[in-house]
Design a protein around this nucleic acid. Structure first.
Length: 240
DNA sequence: AAGTGATACAACCGCCTTAGA
DNA sequence: TTCTAAGGCGGTTGTATCACT
């Protein structure tokens, strides 16, 4: 049957976004909200694919994004969640407010993976390297130094909240949603595991109240100012 | 100072899932 | 129930920047 491309490939711009494009996208979304990404490029006056717009917004322009490297706590959390969930970056990202799946994925591939290898831990199975080679399909339930310290970090947050109350239920990576703990993480316990103050989702009022911003409409000005500031002062993306 | 390799991260691609007709 | 369009996701690539020789 074939699949239609998500957008007309002809005349669609690719590559890095310019400051002007960012501004158009931000201003459009702030005025109209996030809906119908396919229509966004046309309505916003962008020569971009809708998918590209969505990605740019969610990974870079969203006002609730944190910036900078992951903290030690966040990193530990990523490691632990990866041990339980595998490469389900969006699920992992959901537990780290202000972080995107792309960001976490990149950080995993560039930093954490190497760190674990250096420590002699298989980044896929989270087993010690010599051990994991003998049981490649074994899920990661090894309590490494990392995950132990993470447990300490999380103690106050999860508070033995696993339905089974059993740490070892962290097995079955990639076994879909049969893993009770994994289920718990993104269903019952679907709250971010750190930094509760960031635990808003799509509710703009919540978000505004959390970060101390005015209403969405008023927020527009702030964000545009913020973007201008960032562009001219931080990113060197001066479009002139 | 120039060349080269390594690293980090933004962005794209294609498949999968889901909502709605 | 089936089909289609759109959104979402994970893997991969491209490119800018940094570090080293």
């Amino acid at each position: 049957m074939g699949r239609q491309p998500c957008c007309d490939k002809l005349g669609v711009k690719k590559g890095p976004w310019t400051a002007a494009e960012d501004k158009k996208l931000i201003s459009f979304i702030l005025n109209n909200g996030q809906c119908c990404w396919r229509a966004v490029p046309k309505l916003a006056g962008l020569s971009r694919c809708g998918k590209s717009c969505r990605l740019r917004w969610t990974n870079y322009l969203r006002p609730d994004l944190k910036r900078g490297l992951l903290t030690e706590t966040e990193e530990q959390l990523v490691i632990d969640l990866h041990a339980r969930l595998g490469n389900r970056w969006s699920k992992i990202a959901a537990k780290l407010p202000g972080r995107t799946d792309n960001e976490i994925k990149n950080h995993w591939n560039t930093h954490i993976k190497k760190k674990l290898l250096k420590m002699g831990i298989d980044p896929v199975t989270h087993e010690p390297l010599n051990k994991s080679s003998s049981s490649p399909s074994a899920p990661a339930e090894t309590k490494t130094e990392n995950s132990q310290s993470l447990s300490q970090v999380k103690e106050g947050q999860e508070n033995s909240s696993s339905p089974s109350g059993n740490n070892n239920s962290t097995s079955n990576i990639g076994s879909d949603d049969q893993d009770p703990l994994a289920n718990y993480i993104w269903e019952e316990g679907g709250k971010p595991l750190i930094d509760e103050s960031w635990s808003f989702t799509s509710n703009q009022e919540d978000f505004n109240s959390v970060i101390g911003l005015p209403a969405w409409e008023e927020n527009c000005e702030w964000l545009l100012d913020y973007q201008d500031f960032s562009i001219s002062n931080d990113f060197g993306l001066n479009s002139s």
